[in-house]
Design a protein around this nucleic acid. Sequence first.
DNA 1: CGGGCCTTTGACTGGTTTCAACTTCTGTGG
DNA 2: CCACAGAAGTTGAAACCAGTCAAAGGCCCG
Lengths: 191, 191
Amino acid sequence: MAEQLIQHLQKFVSLKDEDGPAILRFFQAKSFKKKENLVEEGDMAKFHYFVVKGCLRLFFVNDKGVEQTLQFAIENWWLSDYMAFQSQKTTDFYIQAVENTEVRAIDYPTQERLFEEFPQLERYFRLIYQRAYAATQLRVKYLFDLSREELYYHFSDHYPDFIQRIPQYLLASFLGFTPEYLSEIRKKKRP
Amino acid sequence: MAEQLIQHLQKFVSLKDEDGPAILRFFQAKSFKKKENLVEEGDMAKFHYFVVKGCLRLFFVNDKGVEQTLQFAIENWWLSDYMAFQSQKTTDFYIQAVENTEVRAIDYPTQERLFEEFPQLERYFRLIYQRAYAATQLRVKYLFDLSREELYYHFSDHYPDFIQRIPQYLLASFLGFTPEYLSEIRKKKRP
DNA sequence: CGGGCCTTTGACTGGTTTCAACTTCTGTGG
DNA sequence: CCACAGAAGTTGAAACCAGTCAAAGGCCCG
């Protein structure tokens, strides 16, 4: 049974058997405890993370001190502050473990070397980014199209098992409203 | 002076001189008049568009009949409904020319053949999607972080010349509020 | 079993929408 | 080149979605 990251690559591009271990050597294995921060505001956006097990979230703290979650990443998803990672600058975001989480991490110069040595991975990441971009394009549509209440129902219909996995205040933080308002929605009968 | 699309490719990957014309043969040149629809709701998301000259917008019509603009694409930007394009399904969106616009268009199967014949373009699109994804990640941050009024000031500070280019009702449609409210913001002195 | 974190409740507030009417701009044909 | 019709922008009043604040209740984990 190959390493999970390699299995995931092979869903998108074909690799020779010996490539797996060679590719893995570019990555660092790291583990984080629930609520531990992988990255904090002001840090260099050093790593691109692949989630092997667990769940991460990307959030920022607004000027009222409230945490706004932008994304979650569960098994087989990639996560970073891409703007800062690309330009190798400091980030305005936090990345935090929602559960105990195991990742494979790669820094920017190492990722560049990885692309040189394994150009097939350009295709892999082309496909990954294409999907991610498509998903975000759709997400922006929902943010404009749906009321906060409709966003909640949309999300709980589409990802019922993920809802089980996270506390309500994180769901509220992701959907962009307050825990109080989420309570109010849940109290009412569904329209 | 090479075709603009080829020049753009060469900013990201190196091509042999003879590759330019060969790559161009995969694309269709099309022109659209201001306010003409390239794509309408219910159409197949057939093409991926590269804007040579002019400006496109991607929008949908909500259940109140209001047009909500998700993105603009000006010179050297790519545009499509990526979710529908990827899965070769019908789209919920419209793509419309904001000005008289010239594009290069490629359909999905042709794009697949293009990647087979010119694998360097996997890298090009990996970089294009990476940038686009990073930009959208940041956009979602702004949507959560800023009030409608702040969104307007943010946008007009960062893209003053683009603002000159488009009518106010399209700006309001992009920022997610009503033309009436935009009037109100502009009437007030800036805080 | 205790403390702190999470969730709920209710009253008040405000940013933004809605609607309708009015004014100004723009482009097209006579 | 002017006239006019439709499109775009402005104004003000009333309504509403969702936030804020404060306080009480529930529940998980040490």
